[in-house]
Design a protein around this nucleic acid. Structure first.
Lengths: 230, 230
DNA sequence: CCAAAAGTGTTCAACATACACCCATGA
DNA sequence: TCATGGGTGTATGTTGAACACTTTTGG
């Protein structure tokens, strides 16, 4: 070990993932109650420690999988939090990631197998450490991104209706949107494929179902979400 | 120390700052040759280690000051890099920050006192570790931000002309811009105060000097750069 | 008087917004 | 038949892009 390195203080590196979901009405946040020594009462983001051989993204993926069984979720790096006292037990730097998932796809699995639960954004319990700051930042980032690009199909079932998609956007922004303008704008992207089926249940008339044009979408999604990578 | 913490591997946390400058023609990058043991030949971003009592942003500020004498520069967090082998000597996670400064304000001081130098973005030397990836990402982020907001007055002298500002934007994007559209757009922000002086030297006619409307600008700048904070 | 850079206005297309009516159906 | 949510079109203002000529002045 070289001298310059030896003198340095090491510290723990954690990863915390903010997982957003949508149940058709509200934006939800996935939290775990791990009953760890630190604080048995408060809930926590999907967090864990970096191990010696994995990258940050790999660690975030692994931790999310261990805590919830969720796999192959696209996690995006949000921000790194490093206030000296953010973790009162030991100096820890935490790299926060965030992702969008479809609540329906995972609800059962998560609640049955793990101590994880979906919480409405308006009714969050007390959160560990600075996790509330992380959530705040993630919401801002989500809104910002959603305002610029058609992000957010991940939050819906594979087949969904335009009114459902509109409700999602309204939940993200906490506003109402004119349905004529919304459908025109979203359809003008040509990212949606209209199906022949209708979804009944939310109305008597029923609403046409759509699917995402996967190739086009992932192209655009990547070029936006990763505008800094590559 | 609690059991859950004890088992965890610690690792070094570094900070690396990407400092952009502009000399009137080209975008420049500030690099140091610290002649450290790791590699005496290659140049490096403004990097150093996190110490136990400081936050990430404080550490980035301190390191920049120690290496260049620059103070009170607004550093924005860019991304955290943590590939297991990015630093071959020891596992290190690096939090990258970036900033814009005006080359003229600092050129002397930096070169005289420190082993730091400005490099044209097109003629970068070999860089330490994954610093080139960091620079690439910072450029993308800079372009993205500049495309959305009037960022970048930091890169110019306090008094500057519209043509100078245009050259800066052209350097950031590597394109040419129509001067009529450019001046209309930039003036429509009402962020510039026209002075009665003219700057001669770049032309016989001379171009009017402008100043930034500081209050308005810092308002807008903060609400954009920190769209995730607060 | 001429070369070189500064400064300025108009037109057109694309896009965002505001707004109101008919449709299909289950109860 | 009626209440509920689904679906569509038009008019208006705003914004970004393309484009060319006149002004100033040092040499």
């Amino acid at each position: 070990m070289l001298a310059q390195y030896q003198q340095q203080t090491e510290c723990l590196v954690a990863l915390d993932s903010i997982i957003f979901g949508f149940d058709g009405l509200e934006l939800k946040l996935l939290l775990v109650n791990r009953g760890v020594e630190v604080d048995k009462q408060t809930w926590s983001l999907m967090g864990g420690w970096l191990t010696p051989t994995e990258s940050l993204a790999q660690a975030a993926d692994r931790i999310l999988y261990e805590l919830t069984g969720l796999r192959d979720i696209y996690l995006e790096q949000l921000h790194t939090f490093g206030e000296p006292l953010r973790d009162p037990v030991q100096r820890t730097v935490s790299v926060a990631y965030f992702a969008l998932v479809n609540v329906q796809d995972y609800e059962q699995k998560i609640s049955d197998t793990f101590h994880a639960n979906w919480f409405s954004l308006n009714e969050l319990p007390e959160l560990l450490f600075d996790h509330r700051d992380m959530v705040k930042m993630a919401i801002k980032s989500l809104r910002y991104k959603a305002s610029q690009h058609p992000i957010g199909f991940e939050l819906l079932p594979q087949k969904f209706t335009i009114p459902q998609l509109q409700k999602l956007y309204e939940a993200i922004f906490g506003t109402t949107i004119d349905k004529r303008n919304f459908s025109r704008k979203i359809l003008s992207t040509n990212l949606l494929l209209k199906l022949d089926e209708k979804h009944r249940g939310s109305s008597k008339k029923g609403a046409f179902l759509y699917e995402v044009n996967k190739e086009k979408y992932s192209q655009q999604f990547n070029s936006f979400m990763n505008f800094m990578a590559s």
